[in-house]
């Protein structure tokens, strides 16, 4: 072994002086993504061995003060107060990872972005004057710098552990941005789009769920948002030749990731 390699091994085997501090933050969201962390039953104890869960109100009332090494941010920005608070979170965080469709794309609540929010408020609340909200529900990355995004509604707990694991070991996380179809085919699932079809958003949606819906004979709902280079227009055009209506296309692309650029443009293209 060369001298250089010996040093490298030494550095790697050194016991870390202090456990990295992890915080979990919530903005406009349903808590489902945070629960994915609690859902990591088997892995959670192992994670707690290697990171100091310093601020995670969903799990414990004990809060250690910042700064934090890793912040997991759930939820979108929908109020003026949140738009302020996310900057405080960013200031206290070395690495900020957004988790879930709300934090990465605005979430289902971004459906308001396509309409006038004031009309919703009037329709829903008895005393609209007490409601202070922004016109749009926006992803965290529209407000502060984000180091890493984890997609999904909810996120995959496997990917969450993978990202924490990669951080701890100083390596690149395995969270590819190709289509759900890749995972679907690797699992040997018969493609429903072709075999009974035609609706499945897998070809334009980012992998990460291990083709969960197709494995239950359901088309993909696109909950991981657009994949790399998504050709949504080609898919819509093809479906239209099979008789799918514009209305249906709008609804298809207007789900949990309605405000993600590729899906937003595609739904708008069929709205006329």
């Amino acid at each position: 072994m060369s001298k250089k390699n010996t040093t490298a091994v030494k550095v790697l085997t050194q016991k870390k002086a202090r456990k990295p501090k992890l915080a979990v933050w919530k903005f406009s969201s349903c808590d489902g993504c945070q629960l994915s962390l609690l859902d990591c039953e088997d892995e959670l104890l192992a994670i707690a061995e290697h990171v100091d869960i310093a601020n995670f109100p969903e799990a414990s009332r004990m809060v250690t003060k910042g700064p934090y090494d890793i912040s997991l941010v759930e939820g979108s920005i929908t109020t003026p107060h949140d738009a302020e608070r996310i900057h405080q979170v960013r200031r206290q965080s070395k690495v900020l990872i957004t988790i879930g469709a709300c934090a990465t794309a605005g979430g289902i609540q971004a459906l308001r972005n396509f309409k006038d929010v004031k009309q919703f408020i009037v329709a829903v609340y008895a005393n609209p004057k007490f409601i202070e909200t922004l016109n749009k529900s926006t992803p965290i990355a529209d407000h502060v710098f984000v180091d890493f995004e984890l997609r999904g509604c909810p996120i995959s707990k496997h990917q969450l552990v993978e990202v924490i694991n990669a951080y701890l070991n100083g390596r690149k996380p395995n969270t590819p941005s190709y289509a759900v179809c890749v995972e679907c085919k690797r699992r040997g699932i018969t493609c429903g789009l072709v075999a009974h079809g035609p609706i499945c958003l897998g070809p334009v949606t980012q992998a990460g769920c291990d083709a969960l819906c197709p494995s239950y004979h359901r088309g993909c709902f696109g909950c991981f948002g657009p994949k790399e280079t998504p050709n949504t227009a080609a898919l819509s055009t093809y479906w239209k030749t099979l008789g799918v209506k514009d209305d249906d296309l709008v609804r298809l692309f207007r789900g949990f990731n309605a405000y993600a650029e590729a899906f937003r443009k595609e739904s708008e293209a069929h709205e006329k």
Binding site: A179, C181, P203, P230, N231, A234, L235
Partner: peptide, 9 residues
Amino acid sequence: ASLCLTCTN
């Protein structure tokens, strides 16, 4: 290219 989804199937 305008038709292909780069889906890998």
